[in-house]
Nucleic acid binder design. Structure first.
Lengths: 119, 119
DNA sequence: CCGTATCCTCACAGATACTG
DNA sequence: CAGTATCTGTGAGGATACGG
């Protein structure tokens, strides 16, 4: 099974406290990051659509989560100069790779959530 | 690609605000949860070994993280009645399944961290 | 419609000290 | 060795109001 030790055998010092992977892991596994990325997996969404798709996220946290993901190069933002304004968010190729890597985790959690909370 | 919508098509209401999967997702993607689980993927570890394997985690957070994971049925705790005390932690079958589902994500983050932070 | 700005709070998290 | 106890702060996150 893939363990921390296995990863470190392949890549020296990975996931040690000072390693950048710790920062990326924090972004990716932030409270809302996973859900926003998964929401965009279907394709481009507008701001309000992301908000509804995720559900329960405040405007402030959506803005901040999208900014972090955009700064990380995982999500792209396209503003259309119209009235009323239209802004669209989509996964970058990098973000698509990440969502694929997250998929088994999401599927597992969806499948086992009931078992765990009732357990 | 696996999206929120895809998951909801298969399982009505999953990952909506009131769904238990949100709680499980929070536990699993907590700051230290991922790293502790990955550390245990190699096999049984003693308290101090987990602490060293993860790196940078305080005693308080290790205790609290292990408790949450144990309560979720993902990690088992075995206290050996010896002096000095010896306590061992291991993944349960459920936890092993979770770690397998997390593996692609960890591998992806390890592979792309540098690329992301350097922007 | 798509955000910013502001204020507030509470639980996450670190540091330190101590115990069976 | 394997924790618990306590104190403290920081910032993630929510609510509300407002602006382009």
């Amino acid at each position: 099974m893939l363990s921390l030790q296995t990863l470190r055998d392949q890549q020296d010092g990975v996931f040690t406290p000072a390693c950048p992977s710790r920062v990326v892991l924090d972004h990716v596994t932030s409270k809302w990051g996973v859900l926003v990325l998964a929401a965009l997996a279907d394709g481009t969404l507008r701001w309000g659509e992301v908000r509804r798709a995720v559900g329960g996220i405040s405007e402030k946290m959506l803005a901040s989560t999208l900014k972090t993901l955009e700064a990380d190069g995982l999500v792209s933002r396209t503003a259309h100069p119209e009235v009323p304004p239209r802004v669209e968010y989509a996964l970058t190729p990098l973000g698509e790779g990440l969502v694929e890597a997250m998929s088994p985790l999401l599927a597992w959690v969806a499948a086992h959530a009931e078992e765990i909370v009732s357990g």
